[in-house]
Amino acid sequence: MTAFAVIAGIILASGLMVVRSENLVHSVLWLAVTLIATAVQFVLLNAPFLAGMQLMLYTGGIITLMLFGVMLTIRDEGVDIPNPSEGHLAGAGAALAFLVPTLYAIWGTPDFGPMVDPITAKDIGSSFLGPQLIAFEALSVLLLAAMIGAIVLVRRKDP
């Protein structure tokens, strides 16, 4: 429980730093801290496979893509990209609107008690190809659509 609280604190603090940083690169790096701390949380929840995937896909993949985005948007000399925080009130409102249903969902969830067996890669694999098959396939179609969309967007107009 103590470990959970410490890691949750790190996640919250670094998440706050993501939006508070004035420098875009610092924001991205704070987001990396958030995601790595989330992976640690998965380890504490006895889901090592999920933790590995979190590190590999989110931290290793998504953040790298964001760094790419940052690099490709640097048009002028100098590397400081302004990243001001604006609209504090609207942001607070949106956060509150998200907080209320989340808290409601958390209180509505029964206590599963401590996890005894770790969730292995085999469990996840057989649930993907078993009960969750339709959701899994729908997700892959979604990703395919996103990929085709990206190709259409970057395609040159004159062939």
């Binding site: 496979f49 933790a51 590995g52 590190l55 590999m56 290793g60 993949g61 790298t64 292995t120 890669a121």
Partner: peptide, 27 residues
Amino acid sequence: LDIGILWVMALAGLMVFPIWVAGWAAN
């Protein structure tokens, strides 16, 4: 670890950050 090779690959994926950050921070 049960996730042995995944652990190695995940860390290898993280390897690009410190190197990119070093290049960026040196300005």
